[in-house]
Design a binder for these strands. Structure first.
Lengths: 192, 192
DNA sequence: AATAGATGTTAAACTAGATTAACATTATTT
DNA sequence: AAATAATGTTAATCTAGTTTAACATCTATT
C-alpha cells in the first residue's frame, strides 16, 4: 500500500489524516495470473491501482476476436470506466497477465473521497484528462501511421511492457495480426 | 450565453451568484467559416463551448493529410486538451466549418472557477470521464468494425452532424478515403 | 448565363495487412 | 526426459481499402 501513497505524494500533498482516511477506505486484492478483474457484461465496481503485476483490458468482438485496449503495470490504473461511472454492464474484460496486486477504489468510496478530500478529486480529474489525451493521440496514430511505425512507437514508449508480454498480445494492441507483427520484426532485424 | 447556462442547469444546480460569477469570467467569441480556433504548434489557450456553428479538430500528418478526430456542434466542447492542460504547443488544429460562436474558458479562469465552484470541477471531471470513455470505444470500433460498419454507426450516432458536413470529411473522420466512402454509400443504396 | 472552385462518383490497378496452414521454438507439466 | 501446451515464424494466397485519374455535379461569383 506504501507505493500507492508514494505515487500520490509524487503529485499532491495530503495530510497524515487524509492519507490515513484514504488507506482506511480502500482495500488490497490479490489475483493470480489468468484471473479476471472485470468480465464483459458484469458491472465494473472498482477503479484499480496496480501495486504489482500486469493486466490487459480487452474487447471480445462478435467473431470471438480479442482487441487489447490497454496494458496496466505498476503505478497505472485499470477499470472499465464506462461501466464504472454509469454502473452498467461492462464492454471490456480485464484479466491478469501475471500474479497481480490491486488497490480497489469502489464507486461509493471514491465519491466519499472526493467529498472529503477535494485535492484528490482534482488529482483524479487530472489523471483522467491525461488518459483522455493519450487516447485521442492513439486514435490519430492508428490513422496516420503504418503498422510498423506504430510498433516502433510502442516499443519506444513502453519498453518495459513489451518485455513482459507475449508478442501476439502486442499485435492485438497494435491492431494487427501476430503473423504480420512477426513479419515486421524480421524486416526490422534485417535493416539493423 | 443563455444556452451555456441551460446546458449547465441540465446537469448541476448553481446559485444565482455562481452563475453570475461564471458568466462574468468567460467570454463569447465569433468566428467565420474557415477560421482557425487553434493551429497546430500554437498553445491552446481555451476550452471552448459551442453555442452555435460547427468545428472540426484534425491532425495534419507528415504527408499533409488531414485526419479528423472530432466534430463539435451546439452544446459540445472543443479544445486541444493535451495542449491546454500542459500549455505546450498543440498537435491539432481546430477550424470552423460554419460561422461559429464559442464561449471561451481560459486556463486561469477555469482554475479559478474550479476553486470557487467545486460543483463545477466535479461536473467537468464527469464530462472528461465521458469523453475518455467515448474515445476508448472509438479505438475499439476502429479495430473491430469494417469501414462500412463504422460508417453506419456514425450515421446512426451523429445523424445531425452528417447532414452538415461534406462527405470527404466524414471519410476522414472514419479513417478511410473519400472514394471508398463513396463506394460504400453506393453499395448501401443498392441494398436498400 | 458563364466560369471557376469545391464536392462527389466511377473504375482500373495496386498494396498493406489478413488468412490459412504447416512448421519451429519455448515453457510447463507429468 | 517425454509430452503437451503455448508462443513464434515463414510463405502462399487473398481482400479491404488506397491510389490515380477522368469525369460529373453542385454552388458561388462575376
Amino acid at each position: 500500500m506504501e507505493s500507492l501513497l508514494k505515487y500520490i505524494r509524487n503529485h499532491i500533498e495530503l495530510t497524515r489524516e487524509e492519507e490515513e482516511f484514504l488507506v482506511s477506505k480502500v482495500f488490497l486484492r490479490k489475483y493470480l495470473k489468468g484471473q479476471y478483474v472485470v468480465q464483459q457484461g458484469d458491472i465494473c465496481k472498482y477503479e484499480c491501482f496496480v501495486l504489482s503485476g500486469c493486466t490487459k483490458m480487452f474487447y471480445l468482438d462478435d467473431d470471438g476476436q480479442e482487441h487489447i485496449i490497454l496494458f496496466s503495470i505498476e503505478d497505472w490504473w485499470t477499470s472499465d470506466m464506462g461501466s464504472f461511472i454509469t454502473q452498467t454492464p461492462a464492454d471490456f474484460n480485464i484479466q491478469c497477465l501475471e500474479n497481480t496486486e490491486l488497490v480497489m477504489f469502489s464507486f461509493d468510496i471514491i465519491e466519499e473521497l472526493y467529498e472529503k478530500i477535494p485535492k484528490l478529486e482534482r488529482f483524479f480529474r487530472q489523471i483522467i484528462e491525461r488518459a483522455f489525451v493519450a487516447s485521442q493521440k492513439r486514435i490519430v496514430r492508428n490513422f496516420a501511421l503504418t503498422a510498423k511505425e506504430r510498433y516502433l512507437y510502442f516499443r519506444k514508449q513502453y519498453p518495459k511492457i513489451e518485455q513482459r508480454i507475449p508478442q501476439y498480445m502486442v499485435a492485438s494492441y497494435l491492431g494487427i495480426t501476430k503473423e504480420f507483427l512477426s513479419k515486421i520484426k524480421s524486416q526490422l532485424s534485417l535493416e539493423e
